[in-house]
Design a protein around this nucleic acid. Sequence first.
DNA 1: GTTTGATCCTATAGTTACTACAGGGTGCAT
DNA 2: ATGCACCCTGTAGTAACTATAGGATCAAAC
Lengths: 130, 130
Amino acid sequence: MKIGALAKATKTKVETVRNYEKFGLLPPPARTTSNYRDYGSDHLARLPFIRRARNLGFTLKALRELLELSDNQDQSCEAVDDIASRHLAEIDQKIDDLTTLRSELDRLIGACQHGTVGECKIIETLAPRI
Amino acid sequence: MKIGALAKATKTKVETVRNYEKFGLLPPPARTTSNYRDYGSDHLARLPFIRRARNLGFTLKALRELLELSDNQDQSCEAVDDIASRHLAEIDQKIDDLTTLRSELDRLIGACQHGTVGECKIIETLAPRI
DNA sequence: GTTTGATCCTATAGTTACTACAGGGTGCAT
DNA sequence: ATGCACCCTGTAGTAACTATAGGATCAAAC
């Protein structure tokens, strides 16, 4: 498939797709005789992963590391363990933060339905843990 | 407190703090006679919220909207409900994505400990929901 | 068979959010 | 009074994306 079809299928801008290739997140696809990029199902699977992970605040650099866990199956257990563990801690923190933020937004909406907006404590929800 | 102390207390770069003020996320603090920014406890509470929310992938624009829920307590219930609900859906999606990604990393580490690295299915974890 | 329009190519410049640096003022401590 | 750490404004750099320019390719319509 050509870049336009891939971009559409993954709701990504064409320029962003090319950008990922330049950065080494998407392997360079085959080219047609007229030099058009010709993507396969591996690209189609990989791109949504990148998009979602980006949306979750992972940098392209962090993503490259995670994708290498997938690409180089022959890596040492220590390497896999180290990389995965580091990201696991980061992910847990993010889930925690999102969960507390979620509760406060939920409470806000609930208070609203009872006609009493009350004090908004959004800021406190993400206050630093001591 | 001066900007350096605030930055240190919130693990933020001094330049980033000034940037948030320019963007309207942090209210301009009082100034000393020598024109130094003089922050109070409200700034000290607000900044960690901004930092965490940024880390979760919220844009400065989205943050400004969320912070207005907190600042303008006199907003209409409909406005609060609308803004909060939109962000709630976004947050739920993020929690879902992080949870599935977390499981796969966890499985990878587990497999590692049993000496059988096995196939890495990270990419599939964030595959599109149909 | 050529013209129109959509899509592709590369390359460059703009945007957002942050970071770094330049050039200069402030304030305390030795 | 001379460092030295900190503050100020302003500008320029980075990362990741987005937009635009200038041109090639291809399918379809006339």
